[in-house]
């Protein structure tokens, strides 16, 4: 894993330091877990770690593109919840309608975000906050305020629960998304335009880039990936979950920022975002094992507190680093 990730980290940019830090922290944490807990390196732990965290990795990928443009998408958790409900309702018609339905639901929400932000010139923060509420509301309305069982007869549950070549299907999906995301950002002109727009919208416009279209596409993509995460959620847990997804946006933002992407936009890396997502997930994996040892007992609420504090620390460190490089 480390080897395949190492290439994008060679890029000559100010984020180098942060990216190296993420990899070191990730390696250190894995080593710590392997030495301290008996079953940490077991196939069961590794596979369930990948299966569960693929959803977050997908959302973090979409968030990375949004943050690179200098924006933010707070709606991803709500959109995933809504998509999980849509997918669950469509799952009796086959695995594909379930998959496609959830993704389209996410895409529509993302496209509406994009339209509001580019056409009506509303701050992304406000637009996506409103979408978060709207998406949760829609999910609860559709699901009549309870979880919606998926069909177990059409193969829909394969998406979240089965393996392919020994690895969970969600992990394959996330891996494919990350490879495509990396190629797009690093090697496709449109990906470079995303970076240039984050560097300065007015400048990008004067250079002849299609700023509005690109921003629209970025929010639509974030919605699409959140929809995909919602499909995996429904498939993995056997039900559409209108109340899931709370705090997912924070996890995604934290992953992106931990990966060295600047919240001010204009720089960022797909590989480092994956490393950031893995690092955060690993922190919780280690906490779970620690809980299992019985020395400490951390509730899910404490995990939220830790997650929030972690994000805050990273953002403060990032701001300090930036000041130093400017001086």
């Amino acid at each position: 894993m480390l080897k395949t990730l190492s290439r994008p980290f060679m890029a000559k940019s100010s984020g180098d330091f942060a990216r190296l830090g993420v990899l070191l922290a990730l390696a250190g944490l894995i080593l710590f877990g392997a030495l301290r807990y008996d079953n940490f390196i077991s196939p069961f732990n590794i596979l369930s770690f990948l299966r569960y965290n693929s959803m977050f990795a997908l959302i973090a990928l979409g968030m990375a593109f949004v943050i690179i443009t200098g924006g933010i998408d707070l709606s991803v958790g709500g959109v995933a919840a809504m998509a999980s409900v849509v997918a669950a309702y469509l799952s009796p018609y086959g695995w594909f309608p379930g998959l496609a339905g959830g993704m389209v639901a996410g895409l529509i929400a993302g496209a509406i975000n994009g339209l509001i932000i580019t056409r009506m010139r509303i701050q992304p923060f406000i637009a996506t906050l409103a979408m978060m509420l709207a998406a949760y509301g829609t999910a609860l309305l559709l699901a009549n305020n309870q979880s919606v069982s998926v069909s177990y007869d059409t193969g829909f549950t394969m998406i979240g629960q089965d393996d392919f070549l020994g690895f969970p299907i969600p992990a394959w999906i996330a891996a494919l998304a990350y490879v495509l995301g990396w190629v797009f950002l690093e090697r496709h002109p449109a990906g470079r335009h995303v970076l240039a727009i984050g560097d300065g919208e007015a400048t990008a416009n004067l250079m002849g880039l299609k700023v509005e279209k690109t921003l629209f596409a970025v929010y639509a993509l974030s919605g699409l990936l959140a929809g995909l995460a919602g499909v995996i959620l429904a498939s993995q847990f056997g039900a559409g979950q209108p109340t899931e997804g709370v705090g997912w946006e924070l996890f995604a933002i934290a992953s992106v920022v931990v990966g060295g992407t600047l919240l001010t936009g204009g720089s960022g890396s797909v590989g480092a975002t994956l490393a950031g997502a893995l690092l955060l997930a690993m922190v919780f994996n280690v906490l779970n094992f620690e809980n299992g040892l019985g020395w400490i007992s951390l509730s899910a609420y404490w995990q939220s507190v830790i997650r929030g504090s972690f994000l805050l620390v990273v953002v403060v460190l990032q701001a300090r680093l930036m000041k130093k490089t400017e001086a």
Binding site: R192, T203, M207, S267
Partner: peptide
């Protein structure tokens, strides 16, 4: 008006990048 964080080469070609047969940079 240049994108400060992008490379010199990218700034010169931004919006008119030369592409390979696959449509990539």
């Amino acid at each position: 008006n240049l994108a400060p964080q992008r490379s010199v080469a990218e700034n010169i070609y931004l919006a008119r990048e030369p592409r390979t047969g696959l449509g990539l940079l």
